[in-house]
Structure formats: structure tokens, C-alpha cells
């Protein structure tokens, strides 16, 4: 998904909240310069790079690799979750939400994992009443998350060579 396409897909209710982020997306060159100077990555705020790197022993190449896995695997898992919600099977929904949450937790994607946890917890208690609403919120957060991970993978932070020790 290109950045332009991503902006078009931002749900209207999130556009205000993330307006500065949208601005950032269009000014990628200046942001990259900042990144090279400070060696941090802000993105849209759906991930916390510093904390992730601390847990990964400072290994940026590893984080980029894991982000690549997420970008490849997560869309399929989101679709599985959506299908499970449509089928109404609480155990299956809980299982899919669990897998998705586990995958996203690597990147400190708090907003996203809060939603997968809520979906899983409700389903474990047999409550599927709010699934459609939660799924909508999850879809929106998912877009921010994959956008940030794509940004990270493409950024100089992720591609500056050897793992940091």
C-alpha cells in the first residue's frame, strides 16, 4: 500500500486525531533527515521503537525482519478474525485475536493489542455482542500499525547495516 493510498484509507474519525501524523507522512524527506540525526523513529505513534529495540537487544535489523513478517502475516490473520466474527464462534474469535495480539505485541502496538485483548477476553467470557464495533476499531488501528511498520522498514534506522550491540 502506498502512502497516498494509506491516507485515503484513514477513517474520518481518526483523521483529526492523527492530523499531525498525516502531515508527517507527506513530508517524509525532512523526517528522514531528523531520523538520521536523532536515530529515533516516531512514525504515527502506533509503535514504540525505543522500547522494542531495548527488548530486542538494540538489534534494528531484527526488528525490521520481524516487521516484515508482520506485514506478510498479519493481513491474513485479520481476515481470519473477521471471518470468525462473522461465523459467531466465540472460541475461534478468541483464538484468532490471541494470535494477532501476540504478533503485534512485539512492536509495543498498545492501541492495537488493547483491542485484540478486549476481543479475546469478551469471547472467553462468551460475550460476542460488541465484536462488530471492536473489529471496526481494530481495522482502523491496523492501518496505522502497518503504515508505521512499513515506514520503519523503509527508514534509514532499519537499513543502516549491522545489528547494534
Amino acid at each position: 500500500m502506498s502512502r497516498v493510498a494509506f491516507i485515503a484509507l484513514i477513517p474520518p474519525q481518526l483523521a483529526g486525531r492523527h492530523s499531525t501524523h498525516i502531515e508527517n507522512l507527506t513530508g517524509s524527506e525532512s523526517r528522514h533527515r531528523t531520523i538520521m540525526k536523532t536515530e529515533t523513529f516516531a512514525g504515527n505513534g502506533s509503535i514504540c521503537t525505543e522500547v522494542v529495540l531495548e527488548r530486542l537487544n538494540g538489534d534494528r535489523a531484527l526488528m525490521a525482519k520481524l516487521a516484515g513478517f508482520f506485514l506478510e502475516d498479519a493481513p491474513r490473520l485479520v481476515e481470519t478474525l473477521r471471518a470468525d466474527i462473522e461465523s459467531g464462534s466465540a472460541p475461534r474469535i478468541a483464538g484468532s485475536a490471541h494470535s494477532l495480539g501476540g504478533l503485534a505485541s512485539t512492536f509495543e502496538a498498545k492501541s492495537f493489542t488493547r483491542l485484540t485483548t478486549a476481543i479475546e477476553r469478551n469471547c472467553r467470557q462468551g460475550d460476542t455482542s460488541e465484536m462488530t464495533e471492536l473489529m471496526q476499531q481494530l481495522d482502523a488501528e491496523f492501518l496505522w500499525l502497518i503504515a508505521d511498520l512499513r515506514e520503519f522498514v523503509a527508514s534509514p534506522i532499519a537499513s543502516d547495516g549491522e545489528p547494534i550491540r
Binding site: K65, F69, S99
Partner: peptide
């Protein structure tokens, strides 16, 4: 682990 990212990061680490 069924999650390949977990398998990968643990193996590397």
C-alpha cells in the same frame, strides 16, 4: 511456537 516471528527472534537471540 506457531508464530514464525517468535521462532526467528528466539533462534537468533
Amino acid at each position: 511456537d506457531d508464530d514464525r516471528s517468535v521462532r526467528f527472534m528466539l533462534q537468533k537471540s
